[in-house]
Design a protein around this nucleic acid. Structure first.
Lengths: 338, 338
DNA sequence: ACCTCGACGTTGTACGTATAACCTCGGTCC
DNA sequence: GGACCGAGGTTATACGTACAACGTCGAGGT
């Protein structure tokens, strides 16, 4: 429980170097120019090195009043998407001397347990992706600067938001399917309440409603390949099969492939399938998946930049992040109806 | 940069409740029984609530000398495997009042930048997976209690280790292929220096060497589906094609599927393929992948328990974590040679 | 001879918390 | 009636750091 032997402090270094603790702090903090002679600084550095001195972060954080660490709250890490978000956020954080700590919310995309109440690290701010309003207010209760990723700009209680232009992605997707001649479409939707999924449903419905003679059905699935197999199988086995399935993400599309196979349907000849995310999985599938590519790293970068802006009391950068359709082998014109 | 308005401290709460700061600390720390009356405790709790008081973690950490936070260093989060490790570790950590912070080492499985030097959170210990020796010594330099996951027990400089019994998994896998009649095997190996991959190569070679008339070739691939496509394509296009491919993980197997398809080879009729991990990807493939299931959550649990033991100066639990072969559709007897 | 000034430090203090040590006061026991 | 005691607090202090404010000392200017 207790640390084996207590680590050396700046005072120990000071004593070893024959200077005051303040001098050590100055040297270690690289603020000694014009205050300490080059030779003394060197002596301090050597003493610190031989003692294996590392500044006590807790003390520094207390003194400074900030930690230069931010928390990135993500849903389950079952996909490489949020790894990309982290990478992007961590990169720009590092450029500004910040660290990023990753907190995968155990309950998935839904309400997260408050990670601050659980006595975790001290934080300067939070970047949270697609969270429910109650979890949001819990975080706000901590009065920490907050940036929301992919959340309803209307209900984030004034927090800054950074969004992917999912609506435009769905727009491109819908146009592609309509251009191919599809009129009977199944929406395989994630059964998780989240703005990012609501947008997909809303935009898809709006686009199809604008075209007479189209029909749109909806099936719900948990966000996993296995879950999607069951959901898609049920939906596709029902009478009046659609000619195309629009999936809320690539994992659902993978499940749809499997369900189609079981039903003896070939993709894309008998059934077109689309995904959303462009995971590595998308090109591992056979045929490769037509999907919408999301730039996860850019998303993370923009999120971190927005948080930095909030911390600086600057207005965060505006505008959604563009996405684009990637057409591959899983979409084709529908077979002529018998 | 500076926090908008400074958060209330325990002293503010004390003043609001008309008690001393010490009393607030007692009540908040749940150590007031027999020291503070129920009514006063209630008053303090109310004051804390209306002020929105949250204890300053940096101050608490400084005072206590520990943070009850440990770091989990993982390679890139491109797979759900380490999500499982995190989940397991976080679960047992929570049971002991600890938090777990996730640090995806930017350089992948290889040497990691020292996350402590970069001024991140203050930590009580580290769980690190498959790291190179130089990164290891960097961490040891911080004198933090350390547990290594899936690392050579002989070269961890005395750190505790927790390992999956990969060797046994490869043993089961090899027996399965030999039983099916395969004698010409290609090992598609990860091109990353890491003990966990060395074990695979060593065990596979040893098992096949024990059976006369077998041949073993090796091809190397980066750990990604796309990378494996190229590597497997090259290896399979060469003369003297193997009848089975043993892949270091499921992602490589997925790449092998694609390469085989391009070469007009059917799995498993023309080529058996095996993976290792049992990711969701394994059952998304067609045919489903024969692979070795690793219990990621148990792995994380054991890792955290070992760290807790080290922190308590107790000997960590011994013994490797068992794994087991999952036979699916990607393996079959080899086609009779023409 | 006096003042100024830069170079090179040092002393002192505060950050917010947890807890050891102390205080007070009404009731009990002998 | 004095000793003792437990309940219900308070006071004081330390954790390790960063930095503002304060010396000190020798050189240079007048």
């Amino acid at each position: 429980m207790a640390r084996a032997q207590t680590r050396p402090t700046s005072r120990d270094v000071a004593q070893a170097a024959g200077v005051s603790q303040a001098a050590v702090s100055l040297v270690m903090g690289d603020k000694w120019r014009g205050r300490v002679s080059e030779s003394t600084a060197q002596r301090v550095r050597e003493a610190a090195h031989t003692l294996g001195y590392r500044p006590n972060l807790a003390a520094r954080n207390l003194r400074l009043g900030h930690t230069r660490t931010v928390l990135l709250v993500v849903p389950a890490l079952t996909t490489e998407f949020f790894a990309g978000v982290y990478t992007g956020a961590a990169r720009v954080a590092a450029q500004h001397g910040f660290g990023v700590v990753l907190y995968p919310s155990p309950e998935g995309i839904g309400p997260a347990r408050n990670p601050f109440a659980s006595g975790q690290a001290a934080l300067d701010g939070v970047i949270a992706s697609s969270m429910a309003a109650d979890a949001l207010t819990a975080i706000r209760g901590d009065q920490l600067p907050l940036v929301m990723l992919d959340s309803d700009p209307g209900s984030t209680l004034g927090a800054a938001t950074v969004n992917l232009d999912i609506a435009d992605g769905v727009r491109q997707l819908t146009r592609h399917l309509l251009d191919l001649g599809h009129r009977d479409i199944l929406h395989l939707a994630a059964d998780v309440p989240s703005w990012t999924f609501d947008v997909r449903a809303r935009e898809l419905a709006a686009r199809l409603a604008a075209v007479p003679g189209t029909t749109l059905r909806t099936a719900r699935s948990p966000i996993s390949i296995q879950g999607a197999v069951a959901a898609a199988h049920t939906a596709l086995a029902a009478p009046g099969r659609p000619t195309a399935v629009v999936c809320d993400d690539d994992q659902l599309a993978a499940g749809t492939y499997k369900a189609a196979r079981r039903l003896g349907l070939r993709v894309p000849d008998d059934l077109s399938v689309t995904g959303l995310d462009d995971l590595a999985l998308a090109t591992a599938l056979d045929p490769e998946l037509t999907t919408v590519r999301l730039d996860a790293e850019l998303f993370g970068e923009r999120g971190m930049r927005a948080l930095l802006a909030v911390l600086d009391h600057r207005p965060p950068e505006a505008g959604d992040i563009p996405v684009h359709l990637v057409v591959r082998g899983s979409t084709a014109p529908p077979a002529p109806r018998p």
